[in-house]
Amino acid sequence: MNRKNELETHLLSRSYSNEHNKLAQLLLSRYSANGDQKSCLVLEPTQGDARPENVKSLLYVGKNAKPDAERHTMRKLNTRRELKRYFATATKNQAKMVKKLREFSKKSLADEAKVRHQAAQLVKKYNLPQFQDFMPLHKLWVAYMQNLLQLSNQYAVNNPQSLLTKISSADFNGAFITVTQSVNPNNVGMAGIVMYDAQHLFIVVVPSNDSWKHDMVLHHSQESPKLSPKELLGGIRIIEKKGTVFSFAVPVVSEEEDVDTLEFSLLGSRIEFRSVDRSGKKFKGKNVDDLS
């Protein structure tokens, strides 16, 4: 190797101005095949032990682990399935209660106060979901809707047409819906808070006097309405979306009674999707022969 390494010599001469030997040696070792100035990185443990002592495999379950069957059921617990089970038992209980109340009212010969008392007792006993329990959920929903539609903005309030896109992909859990039209005449006039927005159904909770009868009777006479056992109990109602039109109102500002509202109608036949799917859904107009 007959390189003179002028640049390096020049630079190093500043540090080793008196030691020419040292300089020559440095340059020699720097460019030799196995000099001591070769750059290298040595990895050494700095702190602690190299390896913890009791390492368990990921599959290790231990001596005190739960038995296999129990772990299996734990894994099978699924929110959706639990919800389904909850609705199933609640509706079953409700049917039982209606039957009991009907028998009771037959026995007590139209003593309405007694029947009402019995209804309250049954509700307590079977822990039927009550309308009042869902009022806070509805309040949350109203706040969510006002926020989503930006109702503080006056333009949005004056042009409700522009809000429809957002509503079509909004969440209706907690909405207060009224059935205005339905292929099932029993459902017309039903009003309640949505507990669950399923693909083909709205599961709503209605107050104890859920029927349109209340309004009708109040308008025409002073008598209190005659309520059937089912209406007296209230609770869960399952309403099919198909062939049904729902309406709901969103108060513009707070939730006072004399506040302006924006009213909308939902065409149940056209929103038969799970609320998750509906959010990203591209809707398409169709033949309207199935709408009444």
Partner: peptide
């Protein structure tokens, strides 16, 4: 809006 929601 695409036959889903109407005003009023």
């Amino acid at each position: 809006y695409k036959q889903t929601v109407i005003v009023g």
